[in-house]
């Protein structure tokens, strides 16, 4: 190692081969609705991508900053309700403005909550996320006049998708909504990966590894935990905006603690600290849920068994499966 030594980082940049593979995958996904007319599955994949974005945002918190949020779905819910209410009451056609308002509002709610939560760590932090999440759930559930309470928010209009003054589609069309979601999630994934690989990402990882040591190398731990929290919540709010546009409806169940546990399972199923793992996890989770629920309404039992199996035999999730096979071959 003479001259300019290489950097012994634990994550390296993508190899050209992987990069080409990802571009091909993206193009294939973008072409999918044109060759496959099944509206049901196109919508299902859209939902997978939206929950994938939510699970990825939880991974920023759990896998990179080491903070557990039991009810990250609350911030998807806030984003979704605000976008829905904006489209219903303010302007039924302003798609981008509605999304902007929804994401900014989610951030504004997350800021004071985060400010309180980062004063703690570990279990106390996790319990606070549960407490705040339950609070938001109850507000949405009980505020019948605004949110529709138990019935949920119905009749959300489907705005046109405007790009540079041109209307390129409508969110009510499953294929158009699929493409919009694909682009937004892909951009979010690229940006998040970029942020995680930045010096800022290194700070988050140091906090995850050893909070006390991080403070003793000069890191303002609370401040960076808050930044990590805000990033995760803004991404969740973005997923919420896509959610309401895709479904045209949201009910309080989406913001329940039960749904929150589901998001956590997606992250664990896919693999912590990988960003794309949780997206895969969301796919597995939603597919199992959809498939099994056609046979029995007790699909949670089956999913529970899958999760128990995973935790016992594949603690690093599906992402860890690759390494597992590599080890097998070596032996």
């Amino acid at each position: 190692m003479s001259g300019s030594p290489s950097m012994p980082d634990s994550h390296t940049s993508l190899s050209p081969l992987k990069l080409i593979g990802l571009v091909v995958l993206f193009i294939a996904l973008a072409l999918l609705p044109f060759v496959w007319g099944n509206r049901f599955y196109i919508s299902l994949i859209t939902e997978i991508m939206i929950y994938g974005l939510l699970a990825m945002s939880l991974d920023v918190l759990l896998g990179y900053t080491g903070l557990l949020s039991f009810m990250h779905n609350a911030y998807l819910g806030i984003g979704a309700y605000v976008v829905g209410l904006f489209l219903i009451h303010v302007s039924p056609t302003s798609l981008w403005l509605a999304c902007l308002v929804g994401v900014v509002f989610t951030g504004l709610v997350a800021l004071p909550v985060g400010w309180i939560q980062v004063r703690t760590g570990g279990l106390a932090f996790a319990l606070l996320t549960l407490a705040f999440g339950m609070m938001f759930y109850t507000i949405v559930w009980k505020w019948y006049g605004l949110t529709g309470g138990d019935d949920g928010l119905m009749g959300v209009p489907s705005p046109d998708i405007q790009l540079f003054g041109w209307s390129v589609g409508n969110t009510g069309n499953p294929a158009h909504m699929y493409l919009l979601t694909l682009f937004v999630v892909a951009i979010a994934l690229i940006l998040t990966r970029r942020i995680i690989s930045s010096p800022f990402g290194a700070v988050l990882e140091a906090i995850r590894e050893n909070e006390e040591r991080a403070a003793f190398v000069g890191i303002n731990v609370r401040r960076y935990k808050l930044f990590g929290w805000m990033l995760a919540c803004v991404l969740a709010g973005t997923a919420g905006a896509l959610y309401i546009l895709c479904k045209g409806y949201i009910g309080p169940v989406t913001m329940s603690a039960f749904a929150g546990a589901g998001v956590l399972m997606m992250v664990l199923l896919g693999g912590l600290g990988t960003l794309w793992g949780p997206i895969v996890g969301a796919g597995i989770f939603i597919y199992i849920q959809d498939y099994i629920s056609t046979m029995t309404e007790h699909w949670e039992i089956f999913l529970g068994i899958v999760v128990i199996f995973l935790v016992l035999f594949m603690p690093t999730g599906f992402v860890g499966l690759g390494n597992f096979f590599k080890r097998l071959r070596k032996d």
């Binding site: 012994p8 634990s10 050893n210 040591r213």
Partner: peptide, 16 residues
């Protein structure tokens, strides 16, 4: 920082 490399351990302190 257990799961970071030796280099990353020192670099984060330097960066901070």
């Amino acid at each position: 920082f257990n799961n970071l490399t030796v280099f990353e351990n020192v670099r984060i302190a330097k960066q901070a």
